[in-house]
Simulated scan of single mutants.
Amino acid sequence: MTNRREEKREIGELDEKLMAYLRGELGEADAKKLEDMVADDEEYAGRLERLLLGEGSGGQEMTDETLSDKQQRKILRRGKWRMRLTNSAFTFGIVFLAGALAFFGNAWVGSWMHADMFRVTKDLVNFTQSGVSAGSSGSQVGALYGQIKLELREQVGAEQKTAGFLEVSNFLWNVRAEPKWAGGIREKKLFFRYPTDEKMTGDETAYLRTPAWNAMGKLPEGTVSQLAISFDRPMTLKEYESLVAQHVFAYNMETSWLAVDTGAEARGHEPDGGNLLLSAGEVWGFSDRALDYGDAPIQLQGDWDRRTATFVAEMKYLAEHERLTDDIGEDLIFGRDTRIAERYDYLQKHGVRIYGAVVTGPTKELLKLQAEKSITAAFLGKVDWWNWDRPGASGTEYSW
């Protein structure tokens, strides 16, 4: 009760001051002081406006005679503009705050999604495009929109050549991928024969090897080549390296890509005369040098368990991001289902088993693989002039 009485008393005193001002009973200094208080205090301004509108205090009423029309209009105009400015500032503050929250929230979502999108894109290039690996990249990340431009590299001899680019963009969670191969097309020359249950003799698969061996025999000494080879059985990475080392020294050949049995290769394919041939997008594997092994160095001729475990870990990552993997994979591998969960489960149960590889090096050195009886198919890819001796300095400059 005491607080309420004091509040009423303060309001009464305030109205008395304002009434005295309106009647012109205040001196010039007191009137100026009260005007400043009205300009700075919304409560004063509100009380003054109500008194002008005829809402007296304690039964008192105002008439037009107590204050000139000019004074009334000035005070009312000041009150209206104060209200407009207050409302505008409040509205602007709400809009600004909402915009700031939306911007930073969407930027956070965009950055978070960009990291997953980049990693999935890079893995799918390395795992589904035989002989091709992900190269340099550029990206843009906005509040709602993101874009990645990834270089596609293909190794022929000792040189990495640009085979095209892959552009991946997203608007929120809608993702699209668009491969742009050099010249508008990709020549598919690297094929793999999948080792089916139906056993074939060497004579029955000879037509899958003879053209490549003949062409390589006619190529001059000073050339390097790219060759896809397939074996009659899946084998471990260690077994593969031991097998090819029997014919070609490690410094005369480099394995740029490995074809891996993921258990889904035969689905949806009918063997042609007992032979099942797979090309880019149909065959899965990995580019050894493209895997992220962390800070610890990796021995490319060794560390077999660590290398295959890294590949399986990335396949697990793709399976955990199945929707994003399918969205990007649909455009990269021509609408085919990635079957990523099925492939990952198969690798967990059976391990990483190699049944083919893309090798590159001096043409005449690669021709020595002709003596390996377990090779059931050989397809010659790109051929270039001698570049096996790496220059002391080289580089590439991009326009993007």
Rank of each mutant, 00 (worst) to 15 (best):
L366D: 02
P362C: 12
M37Y: 08
F379N: 00
L85S: 07
T121N: 07
D303V: 13
W112T: 12
L85R: 05
R47G: 03
K368E: 02
G58H: 05
G361E: 12
R176W: 09
L227H: 14
N170I: 11
R289L: 00
E198C: 00
K70A: 14
R233G: 06
E178D: 11
M37V: 10
G395M: 01
K199Q: 03
E372D: 15
A313C: 05
L324Q: 14
G56W: 11
G138N: 09
V244Y: 12
E167Y: 09
K373S: 08
E187S: 13
G93Y: 09
A20S: 04
L34T: 13
D69Q: 13
G329M: 14
E167Q: 07
Y240I: 12
L219T: 01
D15P: 00
S225Y: 08
Y355M: 13
K218Y: 00
Y344D: 06
V352Y: 03
W181N: 03
L227K: 01
I94S: 06
G146P: 07
G146T: 14
D69P: 10
L190P: 01
L324E: 14
M216V: 03
G285I: 09
I333M: 12
I328W: 08
E372P: 00
T325Q: 06
F334C: 05
I354M: 10
D123V: 07
A100S: 15
I375Q: 00
N252E: 15
Q72L: 15
I328F: 06
E282Y: 04
I375W: 03
R209L: 02
Q160D: 10
G157F: 00
T236I: 10
E198N: 00
Q348R: 04
V312C: 06
H350R: 13
A215D: 04
S287E: 02
D40Q: 13
A313Y: 01
S137F: 07
